[in-house]
Design a protein around this nucleic acid. Structure first.
Length: 184
DNA sequence: CACAGGATATACT
DNA sequence: GTATATCCTGTGA
């Protein structure tokens, strides 16, 4: 099991290659982004609100929020020395429950099943129901990677502030990334 | 490539 | 109260 009681900057690169399942459906994590407490692009930057309250809860839990009024996005909560932070899970390489994911997404193309935070949540059936749930108990299942992977860092996607921070981590050469990795 | 879709939060008047 | 921005995706040019 991955220890979330550490700095998000230690945890985030470690998640690349880990296996994330919800009700047995999911795959290998190939892309994440780190958001820490001092980060203007983080929901936690301006303090606790109703929406982001699970970000301020215990580490090792999920923080699910609604993005652009339409999509769900899944974050994994970290905490080190009382400072909350989170890892946004941006893309999976589907390995388990492919047919279920295809049905939920309404398409066949493996590359489009979970290559993006909103797509990933739709494929895994993640909604507000999962906000605040622990990651080490059903329906969640999170397995640390068994084999080494090459992790690259780059600029984060879809933000306007603090874009120079290289806090996006991705598996080198994966074809399941939501977008190509760009240097910060 | 442009842009609609439309919840939630914050910053203004 | 109104305005603006957002950790995005599908569709149609």
């Amino acid at each position: 099991m991955i220890d979330f009681s550490r700095s998000v900057h230690e945890v985030a690169p470690e998640l690349i290659g880990a296996t994330l399942l919800v009700d047995g459906i999911g795959g290998r994590v190939v892309e994440v982004e780190a958001y820490d407490r001092e980060d203007p692009a983080s929901h936690g930057y301006r303090g606790r609100t109703e929406r982001n309250s699970s970000m301020f809860g215990p580490p090792g839990h999920a923080y699910v929020y609604r993005s652009y009024g339409i999509h769900w996005c899944l974050n994994l909560v970290c905490e080190s020395e009382g400072v909350p932070s989170a890892v946004l899970v941006r893309a999976l390489e589907p390995t388990r429950g492919l047919d279920e994911m295809r049905t939920r997404r309404g398409l066949d193309d493996l590359r489009l099943l979970a290559s993006g935070p909103g797509r990933l949540c739709q494929a895994l059936g993640i909604t507000r129901e999962h906000d605040g749930l622990p990651l080490d108990r059903p329906p969640f299942e999170l397995l640390a990677r068994a084999e080494p992977v090459q992790v690259h860092a780059g600029a984060r996607v879809g933000i306007t502030r603090a874009t120079e921070l290289p806090w996006r981590y991705a598996e080198a050469g994966s074809r399941f990334l939501s977008r190509p990795l760009r240097p910060a």
